[in-house]
Every structure is written in C-alpha cells, then in structure tokens.
C-alpha cells in the first residue's frame, strides 16, 4: 500500500489529503472536508486536472488582450499544448463574456471562452 499526500485545490480551504493507493487504484481518501475533496484526491492520484486561464490578442479591442479560460478542467499534462494553441489565436472585438474562443481545444472536449465583454476601440 502506497500513501500519497496532496493539498486539495477544489476550494480555498486547502485540505491536506492522504490518498491510499493499491497499485494504480485509489482505495481510500482521508483529510477531505467535503465531497469535492474526494473527487479531487482521486483525480489527482490518477490523472491531475487543472483549469487554465490566459489571454488572446484583440487587435481592435478596448484593451490589446482578452482574458480567456477553459470552461472546465483539462489534463495538467496538456496545459502547455493548450497554451500554445491559445497563443496562436487572435479575435476581433466586440466580444461578449463566455463567447467561445476555441471550441474543444486540442480535442480535450473543453471550450476556451472569453472571461469578459471586450468592446472595440473607439
């Protein structure tokens, strides 16, 4: 039996999790204060997931950058690849919050969406 230690990032509480593994299988999760912790611990031990936020260029925007984020979490190991994809994107204002900027980014099944309204430059 293997014990792994994680800090839960599902909320700002930061619970200290102990995940007991039997080979590749999670057998017990300790230290969580809610169900989200259970889900996080299991996921973290098997295939860690993260939400990702970055920016894309808006040449005609009120600001030169539009903040964007992944509508759900994506595999942690795919973050750099998604960032590269985001870096290549340019959009035109006006944009509305939650507009889809990249649908199903690199096949993760998760959309990259706008974090705010972005009016065009006057």
């Amino acid at each position: 039996m293997e014990e792994r230690n994680y800090i839960c990032t599902a909320c700002p509480m930061g619970c200290k999790l102990i995940v007991r593994m039997e080979g590749d299988e999670v057998v017990k999760i300790l230290g969580n204060r809610c169900r989200k912790g259970e889900t996080f611990g299991r996921q973290e031990a098997i295939a860690p997931q993260r939400m990702l936020a970055s920016t894309v260029r808006v040449p005609n925007g009120f600001h030169p950058l539009l903040p964007v984020y992944t509508k759900g979490s994506i595999p942690k190991r795919k973050i750099l690849e998604v960032l590269e994809k985001i870096r290549d994107v340019e959009v035109m204002a006006p944009i509305k919050a939650e507009d889809v900027i990249i649908a199903n980014v690199i096949g993760t099944g998760v959309d990259v969406i706008a974090s705010r309204d972005m009016p065009a430059k006057n």
Partner: peptide, 10 residues
C-alpha cells in the same frame, strides 16, 4: 462556479 476575476466582475 469557479470563475476568473473578469467574469466574476462582469
């Protein structure tokens, strides 16, 4: 929901 700052403000 788990939102970024600009979306929360929006």
């Amino acid at each position: 929901e788990d939102l970024p700052g600009p979306e929360y403000a929006q």
